[in-house]
C-alpha cells in the first residue's frame, strides 16, 4: 500500500472527503478526529495492519504522519 492509498484509507476511516489530509496535517485541527473516530481508527489499524493501538499511543499522535508511520 503506497502513501496515497494509506492516506485515502485514513480519510475513509475518519469519514473525511478525499484530499482532506496530508502527512503534515495536525490532528488537533481535524474536527472529525473525535473519540468515535479514534475507535474507528483502532478497528482499521487492527484489521488492516495487525497493529493494536493503546490510548497512550493514540495520545502521542500529533500529525497524520505519526499514524502513517504505523500503517505497515
Amino acid at each position: 500500500m503506497d502513501m496515497q492509498e494509506k492516506i485515502a484509507l485514513l480519510e475513509e476511516t475518519l469519514e473525511l472527503d478525499e484530499g482532506t489530509l496530508t502527512a503534515e496535517t495536525v490532528l488537533a485541527d481535524v474536527d472529525e478526529y473525535d473519540s468515535m473516530a479514534k475507535l474507528s481508527l483502532i478497528v482499521m489499524m487492527d484489521d488492516e495492519f495487525g497493529v493494536k493501538l493503546t490510548g497512550d499511543v493514540i495520545k502521542s499522535f500529533v500529525t497524520v504522519g505519526d499514524i502513517l508511520n504505523l500503517m505497515k
Binding site: 473519540s35 479514534k38 475507535l39 483502532i42 493494536k52 493501538l53 493503546t54 490510548g55 493514540i58
Partner: peptide
C-alpha cells in the same frame, strides 16, 4: 469514561 481503554 475512558472510551479507548474500554473499547480495547
Amino acid at each position: 469514561m475512558d472510551d479507548i481503554a474500554v473499547f480495547n
